[in-house]
Design a protein around this nucleic acid. Structure first.
Length: 348
DNA sequence: AAGCCGGGGAC
DNA sequence: GTCCCAGGCTT
């Protein structure tokens, strides 16, 4: 049996029952694919169910506000996905008559839809023969066919893409794409793949060349920056001071608390946290530590400290993005994970 | 081509 | 701790 037949056979015997596999509706598939970008199925599944319940059609989605979308997205990460979806939903309503595109050439034009997602929607919704290449597929092909270029280099990607596309040409596109991804996710895993029970063992380059542990090759890992966020809890009756985060940094367009970022290198009084607090909140302002946590992002480690602030003056000129928020409104604001966890613990 | 964008699970 | 997940956008 050829590679593709073995993959499809394996899939039929081992596939998970996932809700987006029961539909060929392009909108529903788009919803699932965007949510699953860089996101494990187990993590994305509850979000998919919630979004579909809130927004059964693209028209419902397009009618939502950015804040509603981001609030529902809260905790999932990569928040620009949610913003791009709203933009795209509106485009579909205005430019596609409310009918979600099914062809790759149309899908690829949509914001937030790249090569992978366009191929996924096109193949799953209408069997268009476009190969998906995600992390699973590049690993499976990299191992089985012995790709010696780094799969995250531009040459390596080109090679894997061409290989993937050549393999799908005469296949049932939807099932084959699902199958090779599922095979990568459950069987040909990054760590401890199930080679000993693999029907493709004898024709697998990596297995026969004892390179399973080193393929696929990847180049350079990103270096992680360290940052220090000092957040200040300011309460006034049932109101709390919140800040709308600007574009150009992590968690853009989400809400956090008044923030002073320090470098950790401040040695003199001029730069000390106390000095900066005085500058922002008046020289009578006092603060006491409530909590401290380490928050790990892909490329940043953020050491977060939370302080209660007293005897402060709020200067809205110095902090343009802050505003008083009622308990009721607070529930509707999308927040980064550490902020929502902190508020749940310290504010009732 | 390189950097940036989250959060969490598996090991 | 490390790796990486149904990637894409910006510079």
């Amino acid at each position: 049996m050829v590679f593709q037949d073995e993959i499809i056979k394996w899939y039929k015997d081992n596939k998970r029952d996932l809700p987006w596999r029961h539909t060929n509706d392009a909108y529903t598939i788009w919803l699932s694919e965007i949510i699953l970008q860089q996101t494990r199925v187990d993590q994305g599944l509850p979000y998919f169910n919630r979004f579909l319940a809130h927004y059964p059609t693209v028209a419902d989605f397009a009618a939502a506000t950015e804040q509603q979308i981001l609030k529902l997205w809260q905790g999932l990460g990569y928040y620009s996905r949610g913003r791009n979806m709203l933009f795209t939903a509106k485009i579909v309503m205005e430019m596609h008559n409310g009918i979600f595109p099914k062809r790759y050439d149309e899908l690829i034009k949509l914001k937030g839809v790249g090569d992978y997602t366009a191929a996924a929607i096109a193949s799953f919704s209408s069997n268009e023969a476009k190969a998906v290449v995600d992390g699973n597929v590049s690993r499976v092909l990299g191992r089985y066919f012995g790709v010696e270029k780094a799969i995250n280099s531009s040459e390596g990607k080109k090679e894997v893409n061409a290989l993937a596309q050549s393999l799908i040409e005469d296949q049932p596109a939807s099932v084959y794409n699902q199958a090779i991804m599922e095979f990568g996710a459950l069987h040909c895993k990054p760590k401890q793949p199930l080679c000993n029970v693999c029907s493709l063992q004898q024709s697998c380059y990596a297995f026969t060349h004892k390179k399973v542990a080193v393929l696929p090759l990847k180049e350079k890992k990103i270096k992680v920056k360290e940052r220090r966020f000092n957040y200040f809890l300011c309460l006034d009756g049932d109101k709390i001071l919140m800040r709308h985060r600007s574009p150009g940094d992590v968690w853009q367009h989400l809400y956090d608390l008044p923030l002073i970022e320090t470098t950790g290198l401040e040695s003199n009084e001029e730069n000390s946290l106390q000095k900066q607090v005085s500058d922002l909140f008046g020289k009578n302002a006092s603060y006491r530590l409530l909590d401290q946590i380490k928050h790990q992002l892909t490329h940043q480690i953020i050491y977060v400290q939370f302080f209660a602030l007293d005897n402060y003056i709020v200067n809205f000129n110095k902090q343009a993005e802050i505003k008083w928020v009622s308990e009721e409104e607070l529930k509707t604001l999308p927040m980064p994970k550490p902020i929502s966890v902190f508020l749940k613990k310290y504010v009732e």
